[in-house]
């Protein structure tokens, strides 16, 4: 996987008040492909994602140093944070159906971007729901509230919504913790299909999920990068780092 670099992270440090979350980490995330991030709780995985789309700024007392460059442009210097966020799809751990209809949930971002044409919106909604493997289940109830769907459906709705503004980067933060294994598998298939078109950053607590999906895997611990390598390498018998070996084997402690 020697692609051109999509996201460059340089010396990124984040602290919440006095509590540090990331210690000057540097990473290159290549364009197109799945970049998996694993690590124990409090290792800074979610914080890293929040820096990419700058939602870290909503956290109370968050202080950020260093750079996150997307296509060479530092996001913290970008004047229009809304335009930045529209280039990035974000999926949170728990499904968040906005209190709108299924259709409006997906059409939300395109509408904000100024798309008004009914037929164009219909197309976007159908395409995104199909991409998120949800279309067949909801095509007859597009007008019912998104919050009425089951948890797994809502999470796929969230993914459809994240895809609706055609993002260059899709960030998923432990997307599978609230859904069943079968749905997880379906979404994983979706991600595998999508990775040829966009950069996917997958934060996961499930080591095996990173192993199944990641092209590259990054192991974070205590706010520092322990190892970044091809996934096969990370999960091999000799990853070259004792911590990584222990963590992927589940004998970390």
């Amino acid at each position: 996987m020697v692609n051109n670099v999509k996201i460059e992270i340089r010396g990124l440090s984040v602290s919440y008040g006095l509590r540090p979350a990331l210690h000057g980490i540097s990473l290159d995330i290549p364009a197109r492909g799945i970049f998996a991030i694993i690590g124990p709780a409090n290792s800074g995985k979610s914080t890293l994602l929040k820096c990419v789309n700058r939602t870290v700024e909503f956290e109370r007392g968050a202080r950020v140093r260093g750079e996150v460059r997307i296509d060479g442009v530092n996001v913290f210097r970008s004047g229009n944070v809304y335009a930045l966020r529209r280039r990035i799809g974000m999926v949170f751990p728990l499904p968040v159906g906005l209190p709108l209809s299924v259709y409006d949930n997906v059409a939300y971002a395109p509408r904000m971007a100024g798309l008004r044409d009914r037929r164009a919106l219909d197309d976007v909604v159908e395409r995104c729901l199909r991409q998120a493997a949800l279309w067949e289940e909801v095509k007859d109830r597009l007008t019912s509230l998104g919050t009425l769907l089951s948890g797994g459906q809502q999470q796929r709705l969230t993914i459809a919504r994240a895809l609706s503004h055609d993002p260059e980067i899709l960030c998923l933060d432990e997307f599978s913790i609230a859904i069943d294994p079968v749905t997880t598998m379906r979404i994983e298939d979706v991600l595998t299909q999508l990775k040829s078109r966009m950069t996917i950053v997958l934060v996961t607590n499930l080591v095996q999920q990173a192993r199944r999906l990641g092209d590259l895997t990054c192991f974070l611990n205590r706010g520092e990068v322990v190892q970044v390598d091809r996934t096969a390498m990370i999960f091999s018998d000799r990853p070259g780092n004792q911590l990584t070996y222990d963590y992927t084997r589940g004998i970390f402690g």
């Binding site: 939602t55 909503f58 966020r85 968040v96 904000m112 969230t158 994240a162 503004h165």
Partner: peptide
Amino acid sequence: TYVEAAEALGATRWQ
């Protein structure tokens, strides 16, 4: 979570 989700989609304050 609603607010976070909408912010992540690039909604402005008013939107």
